[in-house]
Design a protein around this nucleic acid. Structure first.
Lengths: 220, 220
DNA sequence: CCATGCAGTTAACAACTGTTCTCTGGAATT
DNA sequence: AATTCCAGAGAACAGTTGTTAACTGCATGG
């Protein structure tokens, strides 16, 4: 049943991906609930009706984007939180990892930040579900750490949630830093952007350090 | 100049407020970037062109909503963070205050959460500015607390930012708890909603407590 | 009391939207 | 080699959108 050996399915997935990419681009200056079906197909260069061959509606396109943006992130998160080495060094590594991810996939990060509380329910639900999975995974990693000895299940989950939220906050912070260059176009003022990036990393590091300190003294 | 004694100005502000209220209502199931001018005027019961007498565009309506939603919150925040009484009791009071605010003005909270990273730049900027003011105010209150003795300016600001972010996270958490009743309409299942509320308050309290612990041990 | 200002109306416009039905060409199956 | 399948095109539909211009009526200030 359908081993799909084909040139056919390949082309289909190619246009499907083109639709998703075009949508992601258009979503940089609007939200999903205002994204039109025709707008997307026009950007790709296909007929409006072709859209229906891939998604029943723009909302479903959004759900697919959620999985593209967050689905491949699970292993990365697991290895980052897993107990190892010195705490301060792990924090620095986590912050750098987030910064790198935002620099590599800014549109994905913006999409998640924007649609997490956005106007399209199925997309909100998909994001919430992925983040809940993240929290569960972080929780199981935290449980392995000797620091978590004696912690209740509820406490572990609350800390995992705090980490996940903080990850998103840090992500948007780096995203804002990336947008600094757009405001000043006089000369290529990469200095100000680098500055904003550095300040974002600094703030994120301090906040994660404070959380980590609170974690160590939780059972006092 | 312009003591505006009039019945005239009163009626104008009345329709202006009606436009804002209608917009806020419509924004419960979409985002601002998809909110149409005609949609709003239709909901109020005035001609589409009447809109221009009050706002140049929907984006400006959004900026006005930001000020309505956050402008009156400054004194409340200042008194909540100000140093007094026991720490755990202050946390409980803060969480209850947020819960009460969300219950009293759910549409405002949803609007801020949604448009903070939404698709309309002027609105994003307005929210960011208000939140920055919050952070500054929280910072000056934190500085008064003896616990903050020896803290650098950057550390105080980072903690203030953490508190502000946590306030928003807690707000959306309570908002999600409010929406639980919509999912199950069989009977008036207020039990599940109360449960969700309780769990949200519990999580928020634990998280703030952990942050507060990290704060006390920051200078170790 | 009369002239002005201005909140709100009416009508019309070109442009755009999502969705339907019908059709086509080429890959996939037999 | 003949047939089926199906991604995409094309045309047409009924609604919707933002914005314009010219208007009406009433509270205001002289």
């Amino acid at each position: 049943m359908s081993h799909t050996p084909g040139v056919r399915q390949a082309q289909k997935q190619k246009t499907r991906q083109a639709l998703m990419d075009a949508a992601l681009g258009l979503l940089e200056e609007q939200s999903l609930s205002s994204l039109g079906l025709r707008e997307v197909t026009r950007a790709v260069g296909v007929a409006p009706t072709a859209f229906y061959r891939h998604f029943p509606s723009v909302a479903d396109l959004g759900v697919a984007l959620v999985e593209e943006a967050l689905g491949s992130l699970h292993p990365m998160i697991r290895t980052t939180v897993s107990p190892a080495e010195d705490s301060d060094e792990r924090i620095a590594r986590a912050v750098e990892l987030i910064a790198g991810h935002v620099a590599a996939h800014p549109a994905h990060v913006r999409f998640i930040a924007r649609e997490r509380h956005g106007g399209v329910q199925p997309v909100r639900d998909a994001i919430r579900e992925q983040l809940a999975r993240f929290a569960q995974e972080v929780k199981t990693e935290l449980a392995k750490d000797p620091v978590s000895a004696g912690w209740s299940d509820a406490d572990l989950l609350m800390l995992a949630g705090l980490y996940v939220d903080q990850m998103l906050v840090t992500g948007s912070l780096f995203l804002e830093a990336l947008e600094v260059q757009d405001d000043q176009e006089a000369q290529d003022d990469h200095g100000a952007q680098k500055e904003a990036r550095r300040r974002a990393a600094d703030t994120a590091t301090r906040q994660m350090r404070l959380i980590s300190i609170g974690r160590r003294h939780w059972l006092d």
